[in-house]
Amino acid sequence: MINIKKREELDIKIDKTVGKPFINDAKFSTRNVDVFYGEKQAIFDANIDIGKNQIIAMIGPSGCGKSTFLRCLNRMNDTIQDCHISGDIKLDDEDIYQRQQDPVLLRARVGMVFQKPNPFPKSIYDNVAYGAKLHGLAGSKIELDELVEKSLTRAGLFKEVKDSLHKPGTGLSGGQQQRLCIARTIAIDPEVILMDEPTSALDPIATAVIEELMISLSKKYTIAIVTHSMQQAARVSQRTAYFHLGYLVEVNDTNTVFTNPEHQLTENYITGRFG
């Protein structure tokens, strides 16, 4: 495990996030966010805006807090017993950690796709219909059928599974399962989709399918994706954030980050000289 050091002890100084962390048309904006697991601090003072209908990529070495930060955005960290968060996280200018905010409703607005495909032990149809049934999104069986078909089609999976909608979702291949998980997320029509290394378990072809899917989804949704593949970040995202040992080092347009990084740590990482 990486030993997280205090800002002053780092070999290369991280003063404050360099680049352009703030933008005008922000969907999410986080200010002074610290995250602790028990005594241990995993995120230090993260300040960043996430633009509407954009894809933002989060990169950085393993254990630097990308997943932790992502999970703050839909309050998935609430389910971890000793995880504490301080600072402001605003979604459409509303503090999502304020007392009146119901995390359950928040998660219906901010969907999440996980690193390992985790379809429910139910049929493909029921996997996609799950959220719609929970939130009463479909009035009738016909509407539900339509919603399932539409979501599967948009996730690029419908053609492959249209004859086996009532077979278990766990019987699909890894790439198909991941697209099923994306389908079930877009079925509840969230505003933001968080993706934590969604293609790390997939082959290049399935990865390409999902990347295309992300790009087409970004017309309608705001997407934040954690990835270890810099090519992937470069291919799909408009902006890129680089994390290092719990610090948000640099945020900028993807092009700028990869061609002309401002911070030494970012440069080290993208040129493969990390460590």
Partner: peptide
């Protein structure tokens, strides 16, 4: 991961138990 998947869909704890965990 099953629980996380369900919570991330905006399910409450009891919904998750009833729909995902018990089955």
């Amino acid at each position: 991961a099953m629980r996380d998947g369900s919570y991330a869909m905006g399910a409450t704890k009891s919904e998750t138990i009833k729909q995902v965990i018990i089955p």
